[in-house]
Write a protein that binds this DNA or RNA. Structure first.
Lengths: 138, 138
DNA sequence: TAGTGCTAGTCTCTTTTTGAGACCATACTA
DNA sequence: TAGTATGGTCTCAAAAAGAGACTAGCACTA
């Protein structure tokens, strides 16, 4: 993944540094896609739903400090992009199930690798922070 | 990556749904790490610096619509977490080079897979959005 | 010698995003 | 009759992000 990933469409332009400068918002899949999945809560919900479908209230309990508002909104956003599916069951009171789509699962495959990395290297990062904070640059 | 990744420390608790509920902020590497690398600009800078080291002004030109303020801040954050290194060269005027650390590169490996996915599936996502938006749910 | 531009930022102000919490309607339970 | 649970919406305050002016030292030019 280098240049090709960024610009499906026409303009490859180089500025006077010889750098690519085609990372404009509308032009850039990376930004368009990452902006969604990198929301504060998206990855958590991805993880939850990758395991199995869940209902609204379940998700709320799994991610205790998400506000209801953000849960609703994040789920809507993920649904809009086609990562998850929302099904209403006409029970009383009605229950709603969220489940991953094939598209969502295919994304979760590489994404889970990043999550694994995060778990494995959390300590190094905390160390780096400590060093930085104690170096007086903070 | 499943349960193990989320809780290095003690408490595994299950609520009455039988779900894990240990995704608390302080306890969860995924959130701690992802919160950084999923910043609006972080992935772009990762990509830029994965190729080769760059200077401040270069980065600013590569990502045209980042504000100087956010560029400074994002670089600082990435530096703090140990992903990138900041080197000042005492030229006139002084120049500053940002380059990836080994930690950063090791993260970029799985991360680049996600970025590739994004590039490959951008069309599907845009389609999904269109369907959603036209279904009157928006 | 004043004007211009380069470097890598900081500072302030405004807009956007997020979070906290109240509120809704329905139905079951104590 | 109050309390619980369902899946939300609405409003208001706080936090984060963006726009743009401003800084400092130095080099080049007119």
């Amino acid at each position: 993944m280098t240049a090709a990933a960024h610009s499906q469409s026409a303009s490859f332009s180089a500025n006077n540094d010889g750098e690519r400068s085609d990372w404009d918002a509308g032009n850039c899949p990376v930004r368009d896609v990452m902006n969604q999945i990198s929301g504060k809560w998206s990855t958590l919900l991805f993880e939850a739903l990758a395991a199995k479908p869940h209902r609204f209230g379940e998700l709320r309990r799994m991610v205790p400090d998400i506000s209801q508002r953000m849960l609703t909104q994040t789920l809507r956003d993920l649904q809009r992009d086609g990562y998850i599916e929302r099904t209403v069951f006409p029970t009383k009171p009605p229950s709603v199930e969220y489940r991953m789509t094939p598209l969502g699962s295919s994304l979760f495959e590489p994404l889970s690798k990043v999550l694994e990395w995060a778990a494995a290297n959390h300590a190094s990062i905390k160390d780096a922070r400590k060093v930085y904070d104690e170096s007086g640059l903070a």
